[in-house]
Design a protein around this nucleic acid. Structure first.
Length: 334
DNA sequence: CCTCCACTGGAAGATCGGGAAG
DNA sequence: CTTCCCGATCTTCCAGTGGAGG
């Protein structure tokens, strides 16, 4: 069934990206000054998830690297590296200079100094999920670093700039904005057909089944590819030659549950207990939640810390909050 | 309307753990 | 070994918000 698992992975970047010619051109021409050894304005890619922002950024940067001899590039996911320190560390890592920072206790701002000294050639840094950064001053720091070009990726342009400080916002006025819209059903089918051709046996899945997956994905290519992967894996496990309709229909919730499971695994013990209480109760008020939590744990964290945990769980889309003020209720996402 | 107060999240300082310097 | 310094985590304090209930 599966001949090559790589095209079914979320981070796979195809050699030839579909349905995004305009966006690729826009990003390529923004980065073009680097070809002549000049500084490129920052690019800001925004749009809903699964619309190819990350893919295009990687594709354009890879292409640039094949055309420029001395070019460093780095991809940083700000969801994972959400502090100033971690982001700077990753950026330094892209220059292979993190070895002289393997200690945590470097003097304040030494990372930025090291970075500015270490840049000797053009350096393109992609900051993905940049709206998840908790210390946005790092954007200002990177912006002011000579020789460094930024590609920023976010979901909502408005939300991003609402978070940023004034001085950062004004700096990014000149940024080239490239917006991404959801894929249509036929576009998604085209993307899935490619992945099938590269990763599965011929005739493993029918056109109708691909259409069903595309419809179930609501324009999100990541979801679509996830469902395809889950279906192929399940069919593989059952020793089937072809994917059946039943397998495809079961794969959709399975692909979503997979993401959920991975996120729950990232929670700490206290966070996990809170999550379990919310899930068991169905819907619970903040006061009631903290009451139950304190009763269940020997050494409960403060109420304020629990609110931080809840914020994190909302970011992971494990928990939703409804109602404002005293009407606030928390419930688990199914 | 108005007041009350449960809830939120920012700010500032304490504490923890780990690595480095003395 | 101790001491110092860092980031990360956590607590304490508090101002702002907006439903609930007069």
């Amino acid at each position: 069934m599966i001949t090559d698992a790589r095209p079914l992975q979320p981070e796979f970047v195809p050699a030839d990206v579909r349905h995004r010619d305009g966006e690729i051109d826009a990003l390529t021409s923004t980065l073009a000054p680097i070809l002549d050894g000049n500084h490129a304005d920052p690019a800001l890619l925004y749009g809903p998830s699964g619309t190819g922002k990350t893919c295009i950024a990687r594709y354009a940067v890879d292409k640039l690297r094949s055309e420029v001899v001395n070019l460093h590039t780095q991809y940083v996911n700000c969801w994972e590296d959400y502090t100033r320190f971690k982001t700077l560390f990753r950026v330094l890592e892209g220059l292979n200079r993190s070895f002289d920072v393997h200690r945590q206790s470097t003097p304040r701002d030494e990372l930025l100094d090291k970075l500015r000294n270490a840049i000797d050639t053009a350096y393109v840094v992609v900051l993905d999920e940049v709206d998840q950064l908790e210390e946005t001053t790092v954007l200002y720091d990177l912006w002011r670093t000579p020789g460094l070009s930024l590609v920023l990726i976010a979901n909502e342009e408005k939300e991003l700039f609402a978070e940023l400080e004034g001085r950062v916002t004004s700096r990014f006025k000149t940024a080239i904005r490239i917006s991404f819209d959801c894929y249509g059903t036929n576009e998604l089918i085209g993307i899935l057909e490619d992945r099938v051709r590269w990763g599965l046996h011929q005739d493993a899945i029918t056109d109708d089944q691909l259409r069903w997956i595309a419809d179930a994905s609501a324009g999100d290519a990541r979801v679509a590819i996830g469902i395809l992967r889950a279906a192929a894996q399940e069919a593989d496990q059952r020793g089937l030659e072809q994917v059946t309709d039943e397998v495809v229909r079961e794969a959709a919730p399975e692909a979503k549950a997979e993401i959920q499971r991975k996120n729950v695994e990232k929670l700490t013990t206290d966070q996990r207990i809170l999550y379990d209480i919310i899930r068991d109760q169905g819907s619970v008020s903040p006061d009631d939640l903290y009451e139950r939590y304190s009763g269940e744990v020997d050494d409960p964290k403060s109420n304020r810390m629990v609110r931080n945990y809840l914020k994190k769980m909302r970011r992971y889309n494990l928990v939703t909050a409804t109602g404002k003020g005293r009407a606030r209720m928390y419930s688990a996402v199914e």
